[in-house]
Design a protein around this nucleic acid. Structure first.
Length: 196
DNA sequence: CCCTGATTCGC
DNA sequence: GCGAATCAGG
């Protein structure tokens, strides 16, 4: 993948919004979070809310032979403009009522769905479409996909349970369904019943 | 263990 | 310029 103008713009936007590097990487698709971080630094827009206080010695690793003499005078993070980290996390389900929250209204749209950008190019490699391990409410953990499977009133009701994408309540493939932009949301795209 | 960003350096 | 590897830290 290459850093086209569009992708760079999206990167800047998402970074400014406070999304993590891994989230941005997932959003862009085709890049790792390392790539995103590397690009962020090269663009010179690193350290957003992070204030000074290096606290520990500068990291000069690699005992490898050639020492890079030039101690980069890394642009000191602007200590002032403390950009309040964007809300970003729905956190609407405080663990306990996750079941209720989801069950009452099928995984429709999140509060910030309107702000959310369109799904990535396609989540091919990101996550399987088949759930290897569905979980009950008892097994549901913080970073397990809360996508409901089956009838909540039945004992065989389960949650997807795949690993969630960092800020989301769902795994990548279910996030793609749940976080649809308000604009291009069509009825034919809305699954009335959770599928997998 | 999960995650976060930061840095280095071979490519 | 790019990003994997590696780091420090939560």
């Amino acid at each position: 993948m290459q850093w086209t103008d569009e992708r760079v713009e999206l990167l800047k936007k998402l970074w400014a919004e406070g999304l993590s590097a891994s989230q941005i990487a997932a959003e862009l698709g085709g890049v790792t979070r390392n790539a995103v971080i590397g690009k962020v630094h090269r663009l010179g827009l690193s350290g957003r809310a992070k204030v000074a206080a290096p606290s520990s010695a500068p990291r000069l690793r690699k005992p490898t032979a050639a020492a890079p003499a030039s101690a980069r005078v890394s642009a000191a993070p602007v200590g002032v403009a403390a950009v309040a980290r964007a809300p970003q996390a729905p956190a609407y389900a405080s663990r306990g009522n996750a079941a209720l929250a989801v069950a009452s209204a099928a995984p429709a749209m999140e509060p910030r769905a309107a702000v959310h950008v369109a799904p990535p190019v396609r989540l091919v490699e990101t996550r399987p479409a088949v759930t290897p391990e569905n979980v009950t409410i008892m097994d549901l953990r913080e970073n397990m996909c809360r996508w409901p499977l089956g009838d909540p009133s039945q004992p065989d009701f389960r949650f997807c349970g795949s690993r969630t994408t960092p800020g989301s309540a769902y795994c990548a493939c279910h996030s793609a369904i749940a976080y649809q932009p308000a604009n291009d949301r069509r009825r034919d795209r809305r699954p009335s019943i959770p599928t997998h």
